[in-house]
Design a protein around this nucleic acid. Sequence first.
DNA 1: AAGAATGCATGCAACACACATGTATCTCGA
DNA 2: TCGAGATACATGTGTGTTGCATGCATTCTT
Lengths: 178, 178
Amino acid sequence: MTAAPADQTANLLGALALAVTDRVAEAVTDRSGCSESAAAALSALDQFLDRPSVDRLSQVLGLSQSGTVRLVDRLEQDGLVRRGPGVDGGTTAVPLTAAGRRVARGLEAARLQVLDSVLGPLTEDERHTLATLVGRMLVGMMREPGATRWTCRMCDLAACGRPAGHCPLEREARARYG
Amino acid sequence: MTAAPADQTANLLGALALAVTDRVAEAVTDRSGCSESAAAALSALDQFLDRPSVDRLSQVLGLSQSGTVRLVDRLEQDGLVRRGPGVDGGTTAVPLTAAGRRVARGLEAARLQVLDSVLGPLTEDERHTLATLVGRMLVGMMREPGATRWTCRMCDLAACGRPAGHCPLEREARARYG
DNA sequence: AAGAATGCATGCAACACACATGTATCTCGA
DNA sequence: TCGAGATACATGTGTGTTGCATGCATTCTT
């Protein structure tokens, strides 16, 4: 048995990333009945933003401003969000409706369930090891805040452990930018 | 410091998968100047198939048959593939042109470069550990051959070590289906 | 108070994709 | 050898998602 090629790990990582992203997207869109970007928007609205504006949402999702407006149009038409007055007159807030929050929660659960099943073959110890390595890679991929889109869109804040300071990205961000 | 939540690993895995997929897609489309599915098609045509037919391509990419026909239209229009007679009169072969192969190779290199940089923070030992864990997860995600789309689309066969029998998916497939 | 900047909305267009259908070729049985 | 069914590719049509350019309202700066 000859040595594995140097790039095998890289290749496997790419395959896993693609496969996992596919499965999550499939589960999430099946569960919520809405498109991928709509799902990402709902997830973000459920978690990231206090009083989410259209503009902020466009940053999180990496969509253009007009694209985000259309997306919000669709979500509003489906009764998942409603537009309201923002903090000042120039902005519009986009809070979730009760139905929207329900869909968002379901979609997050579906995501975590898929991810959990992917981790199925690993022991507890191995998961811990994996978490460490993945955290380091994610930290390495960090960019300045507000660069393009959130690397963490679709993240589950509670699961991530961010409030308790367990999220490696959050910790790194604190260390870098205070 | 309280214990990390049980789902943290799952969440980190999801974040990494999304981030990696994003970066790869960005690099690949920047490099090749074509869409994501076009890039996947070029990669597949460069590697997976002996005498690729439209139908087979649609299976690999998980596109509908008509969608694949349009995709091939575009690729042909860009001079990246050319349609030719297939093995029998009913089929059409879609080999890469020289230009197409060049683009495909560049795109694969861009992909591996991104993945390699993601692995940057890890030591050699850690990469080895990661490869083992990722391989196990991928095997766990396997489905019957011909299910929907290839989990390995965009894979680099040489990097994967498939010819030498290093690819965990290939090994598992052999064990299962001979 | 005037001008610049910011944020949201809309007209318009492009792109990728799916569904339904049409057409050509192959396969198999009588 | 002929015809029925299967297979594979192509095309008409419609839809959903996105971006660009632009218009308009509000806020900030000087």
